[in-house]
Simulated assay, not measured.
Amino acid sequence: MHQVEKSDEQWRAELTAAEYHVLRQAGTERPFSHPYETDPTVGVYECRGCGAELFRSETKFDAHCGWPAFYAPLSEDRVEYVEDRSMGRVRTEVRCATCGSHLGHLFEGEGFPTPTDQRYCVNGVALRLRPGV
């Protein structure tokens, strides 16, 4: 159970088709299709599904991967991790801990010059940026 629970009908009514596909069906948006990947705006990135604060712009970096990349969530209790074997290999799916929406995947050990050597590869459509926070 998550703090925010909605019926499938409610999710479909509140989200666009693309948002629903990513957040509720664990889909992936096309790479390089969302402006958040390179947006320099300072602020907090919230879950598009429920508004929970997930990431800060200070932890975002340009990984040249096609999606917004962060090296850490706002705090560990904001996200949950699920083993994902859907692509013929083991990956770590990242979900919003408040509503269970799919955000993207966590990759480690790629050698990025970040404090954690982690890359939270997040679908831009799964986020909403609140500037200036």
Rank of each mutant, 00 (worst) to 15 (best):
L127D: 05
A63N: 07
G27V: 08
T16S: 11
E37N: 14
L74K: 03
V94G: 03
G88E: 14
D77F: 06
E58M: 03
Q25N: 14
T59Y: 03
R128F: 01
G88N: 12
H2Y: 14
L23N: 03
E46Y: 08
P31M: 00
R48N: 15
V82W: 00
G88C: 11
G88M: 15
R91I: 02
S86G: 14
V44M: 13
E19W: 09
L103T: 05
S7E: 13
V90Y: 00
M87G: 00
S7F: 09
E46Q: 15
Q3D: 07
D117C: 12
E9C: 06
F112G: 01
R85G: 11
H105Q: 05
A52N: 15
V22C: 13
E37P: 10
T41G: 12
R48P: 14
T16Y: 00
R56C: 02
G132E: 14
E5H: 10
D84V: 05
L106S: 03
H21P: 05
R91V: 03
R30N: 14
G111Q: 06
V82T: 04
W67Q: 08
R30T: 15
R56H: 03
A126M: 08
H34V: 13
W11M: 00
R30A: 15
V122H: 07
R48S: 13
G88T: 14
D62L: 11
G100F: 04
R24C: 05
Q25A: 12
K60R: 08
F107M: 00
R89E: 06
A18F: 03
E29M: 13
N123C: 14
T38W: 07
R12K: 15
T98R: 15
H2G: 00
F70A: 09
A18E: 15
E14S: 07
Y120S: 06
H105F: 10
L106W: 02
T98M: 08
P35T: 04
T28D: 08
Q118P: 06
E76I: 02
Y36W: 00
H105G: 06
E29N: 15
S57C: 06
H2C: 01
T59A: 08
R78D: 07
S101D: 10
R119Q: 10
F70N: 03
R48I: 06
T41F: 11
D62Y: 09
R130Q: 09
P35C: 00
E80D: 02
R30H: 14
Y20V: 07
C99T: 10
C96I: 11
R91M: 00
G43M: 09
Q3W: 02
E58I: 01
R56F: 02
W67F: 04
Y81W: 15
K6V: 02
L15D: 07
P115R: 09
W67A: 05
E76Y: 00
E37I: 05
D84P: 09
V42G: 02
T92P: 08
R56G: 02
R56P: 01
V42S: 13
C121Y: 02
D84T: 10
H105M: 09
E93G: 04
D8A: 04
T16R: 00
C96L: 11
R89Q: 12
G109D: 08
